[in-house]
Nucleic acid binder design. Structure first.
Lengths: 121, 121
DNA sequence: CAAATATAACTAAATATTTAGTTTAAACTA
DNA sequence: TAGTTTAAACTAAATATTTAGTTATATTTG
């Protein structure tokens, strides 16, 4: 899977949000200063080439949708991130958050419970 | 704090590893194909401008060192990532890893223990 | 001190990315 | 069906990033 540039990723974020959208609808979502229609259109064409986006006809135009799920791309990105910043060690990343107190004891216990339940399925 | 480009971040990674290094030592660390001396030198100059790198004189040259710690930059990066991919919600990111089975029950229990210990200090 | 050497600074050029103007095609409307 | 409108494709240009050549400076060595 190819990496995305910043502008490409930005558009994907909106598409992941909307699931399906025409160019105009994507632009609606983008806060000021909004990019030109053609800018978004060009980026979507690149995303088509990279096989991140597909489309179907609708009315006079196209409706675009993601071909790569957000979670699949997240996986790639977070693995990169893990490798670069935590030597690929998930546990040491988690410790980082624990120390940062971003996660409460309750949160962790819930996750633990969830994990154990999944194991039993 | 400014964002870094890919090439800039790459150099920072090595500098974080080495803590202190001359350009030549950074290049040593980089696997084939190694970039030209001047390429690395230029990037370091940019990193100086962005206040990511400082230097001191040593012998005939400079020894460079990070001004921004890896963990400070990690924090920024992971917050971006969290915002983009998990709506800023740490817990939902953790769930993601749980589902991925990147983290074992034991790992989680250890982290939990650690967290509880810290609370009691 | 002069030459050789090592290194950083400067600069230009190549490449990648982003933006937006123009053209083309399709479909709607009178 | 001809004119109008809408959106996509194509293309060119602006900008950002990366790479590397050249020059200038300082240090070492003979």
């Amino acid at each position: 899977m190819k990496e995305l540039t910043k502008a490409e990723e930005e558009i994907m974020q909106h598409l992941w949000q909307l699931q399906e959208a025409k160019v105009a609808e994507i632009i609606e979502q983008i806060p000021q200063p909004k990019p030109a229609y053609n800018t978004v259109s060009t980026i979507i064409r690149i995303l088509e080439q990279k096989k991140f986006v597909g489309y179907k006809k609708q009315g006079r135009g196209h409706v675009y949708f993601p071909l790569v799920s957000k979670s699949a791309y997240s996986k790639l990105r977070i693995n990169n991130f893990l490798d670069n910043y935590f030597d690929g060690n998930t546990k040491s990343m988690f410790s980082f958050f624990v120390k940062k107190n971003d996660l409460s004891i309750n949160d962790l216990e819930e996750i633990l419970k969830e994990l154990k339940n999944n194991k039993n399925e």
